[in-house]
Design a binder for these strands. Structure first.
Lengths: 206, 206
DNA sequence: ACCTGAACACCGTTCAAGT
DNA sequence: ACCTGAACACCGTTCAAGT
């Protein structure tokens, strides 16, 4: 990796008037749409602006560069995923390890498979953006929720729980991604649900 | 994903004279170097050509576009990985499921961790190139080797073996990537070896 | 405060000219 | 057969001018 210059990914300024808020939301939405219909390759800032119904200059008022744009939509979607996982973890407190794992796997797969096209577009976006830090931040949020949940399990206590949860999370992410990239047919998704659950349960010794 | 235009990724022409072969190899090597030192962001074809000691025009004699260049180095490295996995699988034939799994996990992690910097650079390259097909081709090669190996195990036979092997492979890839992106400290790599093996063994019921 | 769009710098790619 | 590098098209980004 090495020297990759740090690029500012923060939003440039926050909209204060109502119409500006509308503009920013339109730009975000347009980014996802262009990503979906044209692919990362042909997603240009001018095209995004046009799709949003504004000029390029406007886009650059709110985002310092193209990467910041991708970063924003990626963040938005990871946030949804993290929240879904957190909620599932909270609701599953006090259950058995098996019950917890079922809830976790279901929540994760459901969130990722809700819109497969968008999920796949975002893999490309993530790679174009030096998203490692963002992904790690979101992962940690999820992992913390999972760890907290598992410590409330009446059956089973675990050594090196933090690392084990990391392994679980990477496994869910890795296998789900593979199924997505293999086409995500209904049959495969069904098998993924069953096998991923089986793997996680076996790993946790439940 | 949708409409992403198919881009020609094949090499443009094969070198016939000795000096041309040298040129192509220099370009390939320069691509990895620039990727490593400058990052995907600032890897320009002119810079790669300069580093290889040729002009841009020469580069474009052998590769139709920038993506083809990235594709070539990615393919080269995936080939090494696939070969390592295949060899390990062949040597492990006739062992117990446990012995086989140990050999597989060791071969995979060793190959990926041999040069962590290069491995990480290639994640970026893979994302910039629509590498899904290539990765799948290489994955299938590995999975075939693993499947063949596992059918020779004296203990244990498996249902849905193809899908199970796919799960194993995605798990190895996913967890290894996570450790790489988290910094791949010696301690983490050690824990990865232990935990990944444990997970695979548990999943296979060994 | 917010928006516009022509202008600029830079990069991917080509091609006529060379050995 | 192989190489060169100026030229072209296109895209990211800016900024003076507008409401």
């Amino acid at each position: 990796m090495a020297t990759a210059l740090k690029i500012d990914l923060r939003a440039r300024k926050t909209p204060v008037q109502e119409r500006a808020a509308v503009t920013v939301e339109a730009v975000n939405e347009a980014t996802v749409q262009v990503l979906l219909t044209a692919g990362l390759e042909r997603m240009t800032t001018t095209r995004v602006a046009a799709r949003a119904g504004v000029s390029v200059g406007t886009l650059y008022q709110y985002y310092p560069n193209k990467q910041a744009l991708l970063f924003a939509v990626l963040e938005q979607h990871l946030m949804v995923l993290a929240t879904a996982v957190e909620q599932a973890c909270e609701q599953a407190r006090g259950l058995t390890v098996r019950g917890m794992t079922e809830a976790l796997v279901r929540a994760f797969i459901d969130a990722k498979m809700r819109n497969t096209e968008v999920s796949m577009s975002l893999y490309a976006a993530a790679a174009a953006v030096d998203s490692a830090a963002l992904v790690q931040r979101m992962s940690r949020r999820c992992q913390k929720a999972v760890t907290t949940m598992l410590t409330t399990a009446p059956d089973g206590r675990f050594e090196e729980l933090d690392f084990k949860v990391m392994m679980l999370f990477a496994t869910m992410a890795g296998t789900t991604r593979m199924v997505l990239e293999a086409g995500a047919s209904a049959k495969m998704v069904r098998m993924l649900r069953a096998e991923l659950l089986a793997m996680c349960l076996a790993y946790l010794g439940a």
